Structures are given as C-alpha cells and as structure tokens.
Simulated assay, not measured.
Amino acid sequence: MPKRVDHEHRRQQIAAAVRRIAADRGLEGVSLNEVATEAGISKGFVQHYFASRDDMLRFAVTTLRSGLEERIATPPGAEPRVRDLLVALLPLDEPGRDAALVANAFVVRALKDPEIAGHFRTGHGLLRDAVAALLTAAKEAGALSPTVDPTAEAGLLLALVTGLADAVLLGYQTGEEAVALIDLHLSRIST
C-alpha cells in the first residue's frame, strides 16, 4: 500500500526550518539547500513543495501568525488584559527573541514584496483591533481615562512595543526596563 504523505505537515516542516534559519542568520541565510539541510530533507523535496525561494518565503510568513497567537493567548480561565498582551509581544525569553528576529527579517523583505507586506498589514490590523477591544472594555469598566480613544491608543501602544522590542533585541534596554515603560504608559491612561 502506498505511503500517505501529509503535504501540509511537510510544508509546515519546511516553514519551521525557514524560521529557524531566519532567527539565526536572517533571510539572507535562507536558500533551498540550507532549508533542506535544516529540515532534514532533500532539496528536491523542498522544490516539490515550493517552486522558488520567494514562494517558500511567502508561505513561511503566513505561519508567523499562529506562533504570535500562541504567545499572546490568555490562559484558560484568566481575564484578558492589555498589559499581558503587550508584554507577550516583547522578546523576553528565547522563543520571544527568535520570533522577534524572524519577524524583523520578514519586515525587511516586506519592504520589497507586496504579498509579504500584505500579511503584515493584515496581522497588524488584527492585533490593533484586539488591543483596541481590550482598551474599550477597560474604558467601559471605568479603568481608563474617559478621554482615551481606544483605537488611537492601540496604535500608540503597538508602536511603543515595537520600539521597545527592537531596543531589547539590540541590548540598549533590558526586558525589565521595557516592561516598566509599558507599565508607565498604561498608568498614564488609567484611572
């Protein structure tokens, strides 16, 4: 009987290899040969699933959202909080650092690739909407200043976290300092 191949699993395996290489060496280190070696499969296998390096990168960027969703997920039974979501976006541990390095590598690629840029715009919009919804709930509960515009504030908070994440990656802020700055900003808009 012929062996059944889970094609989606293979594509995910290749995307995981792309992410590992990107975290270690950036996208310039990603080639069909390197990905095949990292994934423990042949170059022909990679080419079977992806006609080109660009196709492989475009697929790999679609897999970033699931990792982000896992990082920012609220534990079962816990109340979702803006602070927890924002802190989860910082590279405070090895998986967070790797995720930030991979995302940054793809951001550079997105500047020249409209398809990848579209994935980032969509993901950012979903994240902004999630933060805005949490801020709206906090405002309705009386925990935020009545003058806070949840949508505008969500944009500001995500910009703050992006800058802080880069600062932590580059080593001119510690994770603790970045969290303290998030707390400072949140205290300014809280009642």
Rank of each mutant, 00 (worst) to 15 (best):
R4S: 02
R10Y: 09
Q12R: 15
Q13C: 07
A15Q: 01
A16N: 14
A16Y: 05
V18R: 00
D24A: 14
D24M: 04
L27N: 03
G29T: 12
S31L: 03
N33L: 10
V35H: 00
G40P: 12
I41W: 02
S42W: 05
V46C: 03
Q47W: 07
S52H: 04
D54E: 15
M56S: 00
R58Y: 06
V61D: 00
T62V: 08
T63W: 05
L64T: 01
R65M: 10
L68P: 06
R71D: 13
T74D: 09
P75V: 00
A78R: 15
D84T: 12
L86R: 01
P91S: 08
D93N: 14
E94V: 08
R97Q: 13
R97E: 12
R97T: 13
D98C: 07
A100T: 11
L101M: 14
V102N: 01
V102C: 11
N104E: 13
V107S: 02
A110E: 11
K112H: 12
K112Q: 12
D113V: 04
I116T: 15
R121N: 08
G123F: 07
G123T: 13
V131M: 00
L134V: 04
L135I: 07
A138C: 03
A141Y: 06
S145C: 08
T147C: 03
V148Y: 03
P150D: 02
E153P: 01
G155L: 03
L156D: 10
L157W: 04
L157F: 03
A159F: 05
V161F: 02
G163F: 07
A165K: 02
A165S: 15
A167C: 06
V168L: 08
E176Q: 13
L181V: 04
I182E: 09
I182Y: 04
D183V: 08
L184E: 10
L186T: 00
T191V: 15
